[in-house]
Design a protein around this nucleic acid. Structure first.
Lengths: 238, 238
DNA sequence: ATCTCTTGATAGTAATACTATCAGTTATGC
DNA sequence: GCATAACTGATAGTATTACTATCAAGAGAT
């Protein structure tokens, strides 16, 4: 599975293309692991540099600052997810099944080839998924969103939403809120996954805080999302 | 309207109770305005101190750090909202109407007495609502959530969710996802409001980025939320 | 052999996020 | 009315963060 072929990133996201060098790839891959480990606010370029035996200044040659690194890895994730979606729904004739694939993808279910250990040069999708759940909103919940948006930094997210909105309209051509429905199901999937693990009393899944994610809980979350999505698409009360 | 009577805050949220002194109240009230103005990450206690003609060190006597100030004002908002909810649904016999009040409250609709200028010692609810939309998730999307949670810092949010979940069960006693439904409708309301203003292509409301919030868009967002909530509560497919 | 590109290494700056100290002022108990 | 405690202002200082600048060494291309 060739990521670099698969994902061609917007040049505004970096100063120097991290996929163009060994050091750049290490910055991204180890950056993901570090961020997944200690969290976005605790991460510094200093710590990352130490981790990969380079210097702060070298990392700054690739990314303006750590916020841009976050935006980059999150954008990468959305592009990867859209690719997976295209790939997995390619031969499905039934839009309902496509939507079910969407939901499973959002929870990273049945993405067998990536779920365990990443090999060689691949980046760790499971860790990245965790980052997206916990940190992605920090990529756009910011004062300079307008400027970032002008630079198309959020295009991958928008593209994914559009694609999902398109499937929604296949399923229900007269649905009047396709885009909002798409963006809200994505956010709901992530929020509920976060709450399930960290503030489980806000959900009907999970039991104790910081319990390791169990397949049964994931299954129940999936059913909740299916219920939410399909009930809204099947009603006639707008 | 006496806020201090209305809202009694968890003591873990502060070092010294900000409602107990003039300076404390100024820290909270002006802190809200400053944060609404320049955003959480750009805000510093230095800037806030300058704004209210005091010193950094004095602010640190009330709040451990700016994250705690954020957690405090957000918690205050949830408590205020729960109070409003209790007050406004007090005499409503119909659970459906209660749920409609919930949705309006989440968008701060018809909260007439606070909507324009805050008087005297009151804090600015409209500004605070903006903070909750843009910054609230930063209060819990953090590494130390487990510790914060142990200190009950999120209790107001949980209480509000419980209350909404309770109304959901009044409306539909056999609904199996009341808590998740409650937390997800809150988050969806805020996310969509944010997207509507900042990334409108992710929604079916709004038109141009950074357009001033229009009543029509708010109205359409409200209808979307009604549609989402009631379609999920009226279906039989779980 | 030279030129370019990249990294390593070191240094340095401005701002941030605090902590400590102490003096003056105000509120409180008695 | 007086002693004491509580609070704020003012100043100073530290460690860390978030960068920027410079230069030399090595690797690869021409």
């Amino acid at each position: 599975m060739e990521y670099t072929v698969l994902v061609r990133m917007n040049e505004k996201l970096f100063l120097r293309d991290p996929e163009s060098s060994e050091l750049g790839r290490r910055i991204v891959r180890q950056g993901i692991l570090l961020m997944a480990d200690i969290g976005f606010e605790e991460m510094t370029f200093r710590k990352l540099a130490d981790r990969i035996n380079t210097k702060e200044a070298s990392i700054y040659r690739y990314f303006e600052n750590k916020h841009r690194l976050l935006v980059y890895v999150v954008a990468w994730y959305w592009q990867w997810l859209e690719y997976q979606l295209i790939f997995q729904t390619n031969n499905l004739p039934d839009p309902r099944e496509k939507l079910e694939r969407v939901l499973k993808l959002l929870l990273l279910k049945d993405v067998s080839s990536f779920s365990s250990q990443p090999v060689a040069d691949e980046l760790d999708i499971v860790a990245l998924h965790g980052i997206v759940i916990r940190e992605a909103s920090k990529a756009y919940l910011t004062r300079h969103i307008t400027e970032d948006n002008r630079q198309q930094l959020f295009k991958p997210y928008k593209d994914l939403c559009s694609r999902i909105a398109g499937i929604i309209l296949e399923y229900r051509p007269d649905y009047p809120f396709a885009r909002s429905r798409a963006s809200s199901i994505i956010e709901t999937a992530h929020y509920q996954a976060f709450f399930m693990q960290n503030l489980p009393s806000l959900t009907d899944f999970g039991s104790k805080p910081n319990e390791t994610p169990s397949p049964e809980n994931d299954e129940r979350l999936l059913r909740f999302l299916q219920h939410l999505l399909f009930s809204s698409l099947e009603t006639d009360t707008f």
